[in-house]
Amino acid sequence: MRKIIIYIILIIFCFLLQSTVFRGLAFAGIVPNFLIVLTASLGFMRGERTGLLIGLFCGLLTDIFFGDAIGLYAMIYMYIGFLNGKFSGIFYPENIKLPMTLILFSNLFYGLFTYMLLFMMRSRLNFSYYFVNIIFPEIIYTILITLFLYPLILVSQFDLRPKNDAETTN
């Protein structure tokens, strides 16, 4: 139960930061993607099931407030959470390189899919422009933010670790 409350707090915290405070701190109009960091981190920390559920709720929140169809971002985030969960076997809290790489690729995946589903379908084909001006800066900014956000998520999960190990060994 405590676990779930912490998840909810983390999701709402990240969503609020991203949609309010960091809109004001945007560099060149680009906002870092907190929800990706959260989804990916919980994915490789807690396994694929937690990852995909966290992703689902992050996406749903985005969909309800900013999406055109509910379920689209939910699906993208869900798959990101699930795929990150695949790496939970080789994740160690001391190692920062794997999380960084995974978050980087998650954001790339997110950017590519958003472009493909929402822009390429409307025949906006100038991919290089979107990559250089939107996807790439977003990744860089997100990685920077990860340096601060990731320890926070790690700490929030470490508290639960002993309890959890007993529960989720399947």
């Binding site: 396994g47 990852g51 559920l53 055109d68 399947n170």
Partner: peptide, 24 residues
């Protein structure tokens, strides 16, 4: 709960697709 991630993903994908169609 014993449903493995793979099946959960499958079910939720269908759910999301349904939601997209429904909300459109």
């Amino acid at each position: 709960f014993t449903l493995s991630g793979k099946y959960l993903l499958f079910i939720l994908t269908i759910l999301c697709t349904g939601l997209i169609v429904l909300t459109l």
